[in-house]
């Protein structure tokens, strides 16, 4: 176990009902990393993430986020922020009210102070002036950015992102990558993201694990660029090569 690991996973077995998806997972996420969980569709990446954020209870094994069992954190002040795939903003509330929700529940700030924090958090993700918009009135990329603003409302030291660039156009995806990079660099946050979008992995991830459905476990770990260039495992090479063609296109979109 690393001395400064923010997330520690040991002997973790996860699944749905009687179906085991992944067996005996073990990894650490050191502080300050942008850590990617990679793998093909349906291999259990998002399920692993749901375990890391405490929404599911593991079949076996131990996991700790900031030294605590995430499932036991339910109902208390959350030690981490989560961006869901769709943004998961509450549709009946404005963006401002969405970001205000955790502030109202977990801080002693008065209404004026809360409004100031909300404006600052929305400005951080490039949504200044949008506090009175409803989620239905903004685009998919903006919803995700607002989701990040809400996830960061309480200044968590760990941010979890479920497929942040899924369903976005290449420009929005690159903008979101830039935002994640900026936030993790300037705030020193540890970021864990689930994705199969290699362009964004090569751009922002400092380390990764790759899950495989057949192996029911981790088949590779390390710096994604090093894995792409030097892995001997044909499954890893196939995963990276299959998407290699997409990388320059999106990279080019960034200008």
């Amino acid at each position: 176990m690393g001395h400064d690991a923010v997330i520690e996973v040991e002997g973790l077995t996860i699944g749905w009902g009687p179906v085991v998806l992944m067996r005996d997972l073990a990894f650490d996420v050191p502080r300050g990393e942008v850590f990617a969980i990679l793998g093909g569709s349906g291999c259990g990446k998002s399920t692993l993430l749901r375990h890391l954020i405490g929404l599911e209870v593991p079949m076996a094994g131990r996991l700790a986020v900031l030294g605590r069992d995430p499932a036991a954190c339910q109902g208390g002040r959350p030690p981490f922020g989560v961006l869901f795939q769709s943004g998961a903003l509450l549709g009946s509330m404005t963006l401002g009210e969405n970001v205000e929700l955790p502030l109202r529940a977990w801080t002693a700030l008065g209404p004026t102070a809360r409004a100031a924090v909300v404006r600052a958090k929305l400005a951080l993700v490039g949504l200044e002036g949008f506090e009175n918009h409803l989620p239905a009135e903004i685009s998919g990329g903006m919803k995700k950015r607002a989701g990040i603003a809400r996830a960061m409302a309480l200044d968590p030291s760990v941010l979890f992102l479920d497929e942040p660039s899924a369903g976005l156009d290449p420009i929005s995806a690159v903008e979101l990558d830039d935002l994640i990079l900026t936030l993790s660099d300037s705030l020193g946050m540890t970021t864990v993201l689930v994705t199969h979008e290699l362009p964004s992995i090569f751009k922002i991830a400092t380390s990764c694990i790759m899950l495989d459905k057949g192996a029911r476990g981790i088949i590779a770990r390390g710096d994604p660029r090093a894995l792409r260039d030097g892995s001997d495992d044909p499954r890893v090479r196939r995963f990276f090569n299959r998407q290699a063609a997409a990388a320059p296109v999106v990279g080019g979109g960034a200008g």
Partner: peptide, 9 residues
Amino acid sequence: EVDALRTLG
């Protein structure tokens, strides 16, 4: 959205 609420504590 319900999961999001839970992760906000």
